[in-house]
Amino acid sequence: MEKTVFICEDTLEGIFTGIYDAYASRIGHDKCELAAGDVPLEMFCDYIQVLPSKEKAEKVIRTLKKQFGEERFYDLYYVLCSNREDKADVVYKTVVVGLSNDLHQNLLDHLSNPYVARAFEIRRNVANEVMHIREFIRFQELENGLLLSKITPQNNILPFLMPHFADRFPLENFMIYDENRKLAGLHQSRHNWCLAQTEGLNPKLSSSRSEQERFYGDLFRLFCKTIAIKPRENLNLQRQMLPLRFRNNMTEFQ
């Protein structure tokens, strides 16, 4: 069977426009597929390039929020921030399943459906990474008082991290920098946060630690070492709770 692939830009706007176009094409959902970003081309497929449209995307967002509720919409948002190649199609098909079965706010409960189960799995993966990074992220104070943190997440999680830290540190100037995407989350004291696509981080900026920085880093390393109870030592358990891949950016493991 010949299928039609809608290729969209890997942004919220791009993918939501893709969903709009796929519906509007009336080709039939079983013959349509959505792909985000660069996709390997296959034989016997029609490819349609989707032009991101703010207007179409907003229509889709409105419909999703109305049909499934705010919370489920954010669940789908989590899925779209993942780095999984099939995420656009999974969200598209999940929406189709949800609308045709009147699932409303129970959208992600329908786990015996393979698309819903996949959306559920991806959402959980992204949410877990947000949870982990929220715990293990470390800030360093620069000479000018700015708090800087560098992270290397698998998924695009800055949109979920920034609200947490903006609420936590309302009076701080801070920046969380996603090295994999060269994306910076910025927060200025008493202002809203924002995201900025960068060309890379100025190395001079990130090397100018404040005088106190070393002192508090040493104190925390001392604390972590002292708090462990020797007769209970269990490095396997430590590794299970705090996998090695997170430790590169953590003060106490440097």
């Binding site: 929220r134 715990e135 293990f136 609420d167 936590r168 540190f169 309302p170 009076l171 701080e172 972590c224 070492k225 708090i227 462990a228 109870i229 020797k230 209970r232 030592e233 269990n234 490095l235 396997n236 358990l237 430590q238 299970q240 709770m241 705090l242 953590m250 106490e252």
Partner: peptide, 19 residues
């Protein structure tokens, strides 16, 4: 000020005894 709290709690590290 500085700070907020999360109902589920947040762990920040794990010591050599896995706590």
């Amino acid at each position: 000020g500085i700070g907020n709290t999360a109902a589920a709690g947040i762990c920040h590290s794990f010591s050599a005894d896995g706590r």
